[in-house]
Write a protein that binds this DNA or RNA. Structure first.
Lengths: 225, 225
DNA sequence: GGGAGCTGTCACCAAGCTGTCATCGCGCGA
DNA sequence: TCGCGCGATGACAGCTTGGTGACAGCTCCC
């Protein structure tokens, strides 16, 4: 899943991106409102993490524009202790959650996860399908009672496919969800590679990744569970 | 969906057409303003991608003429880094978006998609008729609860017929929607072929493709659902 | 500093979509 | 009723697209 972090303080942004990156999110960082607008214009994000204090304006303006444009992407607002009215205002204007600085990175990670699953209509961080169980918090994949070791990229791909199960996902969309702008030069072939690797690990899970030539991939129940 | 790419540098145009072609857009390339005028005279486009620097004039003139003629086709302008005033001018004259060269092809594709969505103006990508449900986002065709695998061309044809359901569509118009000028040597027979293939997959859907000799095809409810 | 494992590239192979051809069926006008 | 022409459809070959093994680089951890 792909996230946008709108934060001007470089080391803070870096810390957030590193933390969420370890949680298997592909993160883009925008240090200004202008950058943020460019990002949302060309990329769909699962969640936007938005600092209110930015060099070229207030994050609330950005949020308001976003909502007026019909964009319903979940937004988590970061505020300083004293910005109470700004915080309230942000929620009124369409923010989905907020966090007061300084905050624990793990808490941020948890709240971001809550927002991602809200969009998928789930109540917890477990996704089960067939004999397969994916735990987004622990970042583990189980088939039946057995834990199957999987790498970060494999899990990220699985999360994307699970969130869109039954639907054909174009390779481009998988690519966008797996990599951020920093990895822009990665060959498109990589998606196929990770599909192949993930397929091996899903053997016997009752879940299969179907290929639809020219269209994309689709995760669905199969008979082999 | 059919796009026009107005760009004189052959390899750039080719790269754009290839990228957008993979995204299921049928692309025509016009290397000069004169060619572009010929194209828009005979064909409706979903989006026009317009380079400003052309051998026989400035793209802004073309854009201005287009708008004066009442044409509202979304236009995405390509500009060089230093052409700031041209960029602003293009927006004033009716461009819908711009991209500064050099750009990422995926970014172009994303922006083109935004423009096509804006024009369609519907958030719901489901089209239902009889027992048939076509999901344009997921690129899936369902009959009742069962997903019927279909290829890109078949889905493109179905989308065209659904968008014009109840109306007779001339074979030429179907042909234009499925292929671009580069595929001009494709036999006209192909439309009939894909109609036949699609018919097989629509069996039992309560929807039928009627043949109207000498006129074209028409998608309509039938009794077999 | 070294090793293990993850990551992404390349090359080659396989699969199936695509479009052509040929043949047959069918409707319509004479 | 016959003939013509448009449309339907099965078979096939080419080519694009995807699958996969091997390998090299990189990172992270010890």
């Amino acid at each position: 899943m792909r996230l946008l972090i709108v934060e001007d303080t470089a080391d803070v942004a870096e810390a957030i991106a590193a933390s969420l990156g370890r949680a298997n999110f592909a993160c883009d960082v925008a240090p200004t409102l202008a950058d943020a607008r460019d990002c949302v214009a060309v990329q769909d994000y699962a969640v936007i993490v938005l600092d209110l204090n930015l060099p070229d304006g207030c994050g609330r303006d950005f949020l308001r524009d976003l909502r007026r444009g019909g964009d319903r992407t979940p937004v988590l607002v970061l505020t300083a202790q004293f910005e109470v009215t700004a915080r309230v205002g942000a929620l009124d204007e369409g923010a989905d959650d907020y966090l007061v600085k300084p905050f624990d990175l793990r808490e941020l990670e948890a709240r971001v996860r809550v927002l991602t699953r809200r969009d998928a209509g789930r109540a917890d961080n477990l996704i089960a399908l067939g004999r397969l169980v994916y735990d987004a918090t622990a970042q583990t994949l189980r088939i039946g009672d057995e834990v199957v070791p999987a790498t970060r990229r494999e899990l990220a791909l699985l999360a994307l496919l699970l969130a869109n199960r039954g639907r054909i996902m174009a390779k481009d969309r998988l690519y966008d969800g797996l990599f951020n702008f920093d990895n822009a030069d990665v060959g498109t072939n990589t998606v196929e590679l990770y599909v192949a690797r993930l397929r091996k690990k899903l053997a016997g899970s009752g879940v299969a990744i179907e290929t639809h030539r020219g269209l994309g991939y689709r995760l669905e129940l199969s008979g082999d569970g």
